[in-house]
Amino acid sequence: MNTHDHILKSFDSELDRLYDEIKQMGELAMAQLNAAVDVLGRRDSNAAARVVANDDAIDALENSISVDVLKLLALRQPMARDLREVYAALRISSDIERIGDYASNVAKRSIVLNNSPAIPAAGRIARLAKTANALLGDALKAYAESDAELAAKVRDADADLDAMYTSFFRELVTYMMEDPRTIGACTHLMFMAKNIERIGDHATNIAENTWFVVHGDMPEGERKKEDRTSE
Rank of each mutant, 00 (worst) to 15 (best):
A89N: 14
V86C: 11
A142C: 02
L135M: 13
A31G: 11
A139F: 00
A126G: 05
N133Y: 02
L90H: 09
N2V: 01
R17M: 09
T3P: 00
L33Y: 06
A121E: 14
A139N: 04
A142V: 04
E27D: 08
I65L: 03
D12G: 07
M25A: 04
Y102D: 14
D20H: 14
L8R: 15
I7R: 15
S10P: 05
A74K: 10
V39W: 00
A134T: 04
R127M: 07
V52E: 09
P120E: 14
L61Q: 02
A118C: 06
V39S: 01
E85M: 08
A126M: 03
L140R: 09
L15Y: 03
E85S: 08
E62Q: 12
L72V: 12
M79T: 15
D5N: 11
N115W: 03
A47V: 07
P120R: 13
Y19W: 08
Y87K: 11
D16Y: 02
S64Q: 15
I125C: 00
A129V: 01
R91H: 03
S94W: 00
A31P: 08
S64F: 01
R42A: 11
D12H: 09
P78N: 01
L135K: 02
L61D: 04
V86F: 03
L72M: 15
S104H: 03
